[in-house]
């Protein structure tokens, strides 16, 4: 897939209306408009959607940093200090380590008033470039890319639009199909979408354990393999819980890919 073919016309990144700016100084910034369709009941943006923004900003920054090689996401952590937001979310990424085999970066999240929404970290393995990897060019000048297109934008809640379904709430079992709408440039489910699945699974499992609705505030995600076939299905286990917050362990399997374990996550959720 070439750069001008990804994301396709109908894609979650276009409906989230992300804008990303990569700069020659090794920093990148992304913006995402906030709508009720991406927010929790409390009005704070969903952790899974924030992870998509982080993945796009961080992935782009790492790809620029690793040139001429390519990158694969190894892990993503998200630590939120959530509060209701209107307007836009801004994500500012910077590389903290560029080595021959790894890239590590931080992404700060804030609202347009400058109030912090949290901090994310990401690690990437540096891989030899292969045919089909997105081209990375124009890195010697400010490069701003808007993924919104005329008519794009969510008109239904995020989970409904990506067809994320709850199979067994108490067990944190949810399912997410692989479609062109949620894939990355390699045709596998996009890393941020895997985080969104972990977010939903953890919340479902912890809702019962905590005895009240909870919202994800922390995620630690380890990517082990690509989800190439789908649908992916989660399995969650509550590690600890109180009446105000809890922690769950989430595994994500590619059911169409011989039930391969693709992703591990630790999810912390709290009452808003």
């Amino acid at each position: 897939m070439q750069a001008d073919e990804y994301p396709p016309a109908q894609h979650i990144l276009r409906d989230l209306q992300l804008t990303v700016e990569h700069r020659p100084d090794g920093t990148s910034t992304g913006w995402m408009p906030v709508t009720p369709f991406i927010c929790n009941a409390s009005g704070s943006p969903r952790a899974g959607v924030m992870a998509i923004l982080v993945d796009v900003v961080g992935g782009g920054l790492a790809a620029v940093s690793a040139r001429p090689d390519w990158i694969a996401t190894a892990d993503l952590t998200l630590h939120l200090t959530p509060h209701p937001v209107s307007g836009e979310i801004e994500a500012v990424g910077r590389v903290v380590r560029q080595g021959r085999t790894t890239v590590v970066l931080e992404v700060s999240l804030r609202d347009l008033g400058g109030s912090s929404l949290g901090l994310a970290t990401m690690s990437f393995a540096v891989l030899p470039r292969r045919e089909g990897n997105l081209s990375v060019d124009q890195v010697d000048r400010v490069n701003r890319l808007t993924m919104a297109t005329p008519g794009s934008g969510l008109v239904t809640p995020f989970h409904d639009r990506v067809e994320l379904t709850v199979v067994e709430a108490a067990l944190g079992t949810i399912e997410l199909p692989l479609s062109d709408y949620v894939v990355n440039s390699l045709g596998s489910i996009q890393g941020g979408m895997m985080a969104a699945a972990a977010d939903a699974a953890g919340e479902q499992a912890l809702r019962g354990a905590c005895g009240a609705p909870v919202e994800t505030v922390d995620m630690q995600i380890t990517y082990l393999a690509l989800a190439k076939v789908g649908p992916v299905r989660t399995r969650a286990r509550v590690l600890s819980s109180t009446s105000t917050f809890g922690t769950s362990h989430v595994e994500i399997f590619d059911t169409g890919g011989a039930d391969r374990l693709t992703t591990l996550a630790t999810v912390v959720a709290a009452r808003p």
Binding site: L80, F245, V268
Partner: peptide, 12 residues
């Protein structure tokens, strides 16, 4: 310190 939550303070 980055902020406070029900489960604790977030610190970088």
């Amino acid at each position: 310190g980055l902020g406070h939550r029900p489960d604790g303070d977030i610190v970088r």
